[in-house]
Amino acid sequence: MTRTIHLSLDINGERRELDVEPRVTLLDALRDHLALTGTKKGCDQGQCGACTCHVDDKRVLSCLTLAAQVEGRQVTTIEGLADENGVLHAVQSAFIEHDAFQCGYCTPGQIMSAVACIREGHAGSDAEIREYMSGNLCRCGAYNNIVVAVREAAKAVSAPARMVEVA
């Protein structure tokens, strides 16, 4: 059989142990080995953004990241965004309120990008939101509503520094 390696990952504030082949991506580790299927596989080539997660609070494409690369780092997925009581993050609520999705498949990636976009200070204008949300494709065409949702969520998140606590 193929050689496996043991990994101990910090995902959504929990320690998760797994044995995988060294070539397994973070995306496949989440979806196929840890039952965290909220992170989506749209292209597996770094082109669509559906697999966007946070590693140490920065957005990364989990399809282009090996699981072995994130040992010792904090991984946040869509499942870790709401608080422990299930209260939605401001961006999640804004996506519902402004109908910023249809099929929902790009949505976790859009939301993870949006949280990072706001945190990075790139939600200052609609034009800036469009630019910094353009790594996430949405074929249903929810772009107008995504811009509104990110703009409104950015207002709700008045102090960007507080967002860093999300994990």
């Binding site: 979806r31 299927t37 997925t77 869509i78 519902i96 999705f101 976790p108």
Partner: peptide, 21 residues
Amino acid sequence: QSRFEGSLKVTGAATYALEYP
């Protein structure tokens, strides 16, 4: 009415075909 299944989709809980164990 806002999207009925909205909270499932924004939390990653909506389960697509390849996500059934």
